[in-house]
Design a protein around this nucleic acid. Sequence first.
DNA 1: TCTAAAACATTCAAGATCGAACAAATGAGA
DNA 2: TCTCATTTGTTCGATCTTGAATGTTTTAGA
Lengths: 383, 383
Amino acid sequence: MSSEQTPETGGKSLFSLQRRERLMEELRAHGAITVRDIAVKLGVSELTIRRDVNTLADEGLVSRVHGGATLPSPLDRSVAVGRPSAHSYSVGMVVPSLDYYWPQVISGARGEAEAQNLRILVRGSAYDAADNRRQVQALLDTQNIDGLIVAPDMGGERGKELLRWLNALPIPVILAERRAPSEIPAHRLEWVATDHSFGAGMAVRHLWQEGHRMIGCLTDSTSPTSPHVVRGWKQALAALKIPLEKSIHEDSAKLDNGDRAKHFDHVLDLCRSTGTTAMLVHSDTQAVAFVQHCVDRGVDVPGSMAIVGYDDEVAYLAEPAISAVRPPKSYVGKVAVQLMAARLAEGRMRPVHRIDLNPELIVRESSVGAPRGLAGVVLEDSL
Amino acid sequence: MSSEQTPETGGKSLFSLQRRERLMEELRAHGAITVRDIAVKLGVSELTIRRDVNTLADEGLVSRVHGGATLPSPLDRSVAVGRPSAHSYSVGMVVPSLDYYWPQVISGARGEAEAQNLRILVRGSAYDAADNRRQVQALLDTQNIDGLIVAPDMGGERGKELLRWLNALPIPVILAERRAPSEIPAHRLEWVATDHSFGAGMAVRHLWQEGHRMIGCLTDSTSPTSPHVVRGWKQALAALKIPLEKSIHEDSAKLDNGDRAKHFDHVLDLCRSTGTTAMLVHSDTQAVAFVQHCVDRGVDVPGSMAIVGYDDEVAYLAEPAISAVRPPKSYVGKVAVQLMAARLAEGRMRPVHRIDLNPELIVRESSVGAPRGLAGVVLEDSL
DNA sequence: TCTAAAACATTCAAGATCGAACAAATGAGA
DNA sequence: TCTCATTTGTTCGATCTTGAATGTTTTAGA
């Protein structure tokens, strides 16, 4: 074959940088290269390739071996020794609220950051993609950020666009309490998120075990976690063969106090007519309000109506104390920082990690004991 | 298999560094090696292996024994210098194969175990729930296990029963490359698994970007990972709006050599009639066979048929070298041990972690360049 | 304890690879 | 266009890696 001599470069010589890039490509494809093969392939002398290999080896990008080069190996003493990486990094953190939920996440992150010798720069944002991006950009511009932990708003096309932008940033990005949907190929994004769906399922199964056979769900559709809670509730119903179409699913997101009371009465009516004896209530603040309403209406909790709150900020304050699903907020922050530290230390070779954390079910008084049913209870004047 | 003499490097010789890496891998996978076995396996003389062992022993990475080498042992006077070596915990590990896939997982686990000062006890099992349970029970009975890493068979009712049993064990249990289905409430089980579905999607999107518009899938239905690969393939097709019902999905699991050739011809016929110009082939061994078949039939790879293999054990040996999705096997083991160490250290307060790792796409020659189509290619006599 | 087989160390040689020195070519800037 | 700095190529002796040959040590079994 006459063409055997022809290098693939088609006669044009490459600059050394391009050549080294090619060399690394071959290396990534085959794991190892011989000086001879590459020299022939690129149409340059072996000595040139050897010099390239030396350069790359000095930067720690390859391991030199007699006859060629391999991907950096831990057995290669030249790279193995000099990497204690005492270098300290700065990590930006953008969260959608500094009042609710996120303080504990931040606190977990700060604690771990201290252990990992990282600096954390926190910025609050709104539940809004445009503002998320503004805040991230501000961190990138003014601070010297080595990595980013962020909980972006993912609604609509703007959310997807934001995710694509985050995925393309030159620094590692870790989502907190968010997951990129699989249809957008954010192949570099890592995340750590609570499995709210699992948490909801746990609550439903707990209520089932206490003897409840119709279990409803009250949600707050304004919260980003709400869809996951609903999904978990539905899956659990399906697994327990509770008919979904007969089960109560109400939303009292945007109601003010007066309307809320009316809505709660409506819910109690529905419970009575469907035989529902237990409710999963998303956001424990709302659960507190609902329990209060039940007590006001003479509905015994948990006797006539068992309640599990989703989230555990204030659930213990109610009378009776409310059982609640508690997301591992501080661990979300902690694990995010662990991921970031490992990513910064290990670089690209480390595979993308995506972590689910399970919440915990805290059983208090509002959900224990067999159901007595609501049938005999009359609103307005019980007994 | 033609001859057991054939080294598995397929004739390509390795550099010394790669050989030593392989040696360490075998060592971590099996605990001990004989000079002879490795020499045969890598196709070099025993003397060479002995020299490698000496080199590694000088660095304290192995302990020399008559006939081979073992992992560094505290009994070995030459390494006994600065070792606290009081193993805090023992972790059992039960995997379904010691020949395929799992050696690298075990190697990663052992490497991390050393860093975490844990002891790992490995047992091979069959791809069978009953045997899994037997092996776990044996570890529980005879060794003093503080934790368990296991890759159980999850098929059928027996698989579910096994998971429930594992979930109820008094020690922490971590699944490797397995996920408990959400319908069984294994609320204590943690896991680390490769997101094969993501990997398949990555391959499809890569082929799409290279210009392919009909992308088929060849699977091996006997493998537990196969369903995930197929799911990822289907999802990616849907996302790219490739009609699933017109796309090729064939299985050549239980075919012997002659039938396989026929089946491959059948597949090529289908490709021609559907306009399919690219295939995702599960298990890279099968991908190698398929590429070989294409070359034999005068079908140009990648010009007329682009191929991406799933898994990356031997893909680089084919001619042309096959692009492949590479699961992060050693990280699966490594992360499992990290999870276990943290669990043993922190106890019940730590939330349950469930980790997905993304595979990597290694682009080689078999998938690059725009498709030319199969239309003009005639089987049996090209040109 | 003794013996045979296997494993090991040592030496040497062949072949390949490497690197120093110098020459030639190339590209950027005056 | 010319010059200088940088990159690349050639030559050749030095160095590295591997394997065969040979003698010594270790191991397992009688």
